[in-house]
Simulated assay, not measured.
Amino acid sequence: MEFSSEPVVCVKNADIYQENQVVLNNIAFNIDKGEFAYLIGRTGSGKSSLLKTIYADLPLRSGEVEVAGINIMGIKRKQVPHLRRKIGIVFQDFQLFNDRSVTENLIFVMQATGWKESSKMKARLAEVLMRVGLGAVSSKMPHQLSGGEQQRVVIARALINEPSILIADEPTGNLDPKVSDDIFKLFLEINRSGTAVLMATHNHTFLTNYPARVLKCEAGKILDSEKEEFELTGYY
């Protein structure tokens, strides 16, 4: 396969909407392959809307957004599963099916993104659960797992298709500090293996203990720590 040095996310002159309100105006930034970046900002500043636009849950109305080589503008519904094979999404509130086992939750995603061969699905399922430290929970139901274990299942689900980037929206927001730190370190391990990570977070401890590039949503703009200095605190 030919190696590409193109950014995994490229945003140019984009307006980001929350319903009919512009929350981010004329923004531009790239996320490179294998990069780790934080996304911070006060509640309502546009963080989640930006992430949802990147993974095509919200429509892009103006500007350019390209993710893993796919142009988001005007993307058709039938093209979204192809995009989602290249993006892993980790939510704060897990969004697991509570009436299905861990295995069934992961198989649902596999089938939705085009997997067909049962033997390959089983092998990949076992592989991603081992990677997140959950080799023995495949038959359990979500309610039988701790919050940290549920989030590890969500991360396993996000890794199914070997994505170019993990997009995480407050992935430790519902977890206690010790579990949060363990989950964060798992993201770092995944990033070190070559997967880019864009993580929205309110956890200032991460920024202090694990410094990385920071994108801050503020007053309708994106501030980039690689280009300018700004205050990291006070973004709640």
Rank of each mutant, 00 (worst) to 15 (best):
L232Y: 08
T195W: 03
L207K: 04
Q18H: 15
E170S: 08
Q79F: 06
R61L: 15
V11T: 03
N98H: 06
F230T: 05
V137L: 06
D181T: 07
A219F: 15
R192E: 13
H202T: 01
L223M: 06
A219V: 12
Y38Q: 05
C10Y: 14
N25E: 15
A168T: 12
E117N: 15
V197C: 08
T195E: 09
P81Y: 01
G69V: 01
E229A: 13
F91V: 02
D93H: 14
L145I: 12
T205L: 13
L51W: 10
T53I: 12
N30G: 00
K47D: 02
M1C: 13
R131G: 08
E6Q: 13
I16S: 06
N161I: 05
R61N: 09
A28I: 06
R61P: 08
N25F: 13
F94H: 13
P211K: 05
T208A: 14
D181K: 14
L166D: 01
Y235D: 03
F187N: 10
A212W: 07
E19W: 08
G135K: 06
Y17Q: 10
S180V: 13
N209A: 11
G220H: 00
V22W: 00
V153M: 02
A112L: 12
V80C: 04
K86G: 09
N20P: 09
Q21N: 14
R77N: 09
I31F: 13
L96I: 02
G147W: 02
K120R: 00
L106T: 01
H204I: 15
V80T: 11
S48Y: 06
E117F: 12
I155W: 11
D15V: 04
K221M: 07
W115D: 11
F184L: 01
I190F: 07
E6R: 09
S118P: 09
I89M: 04
W115F: 14
V153P: 07
E226P: 06
N105Y: 05
Q150T: 10
C10F: 14
F187M: 13
T208E: 15
S138K: 03
F206N: 03
P142D: 07
H204M: 15
F29W: 05
G194C: 05
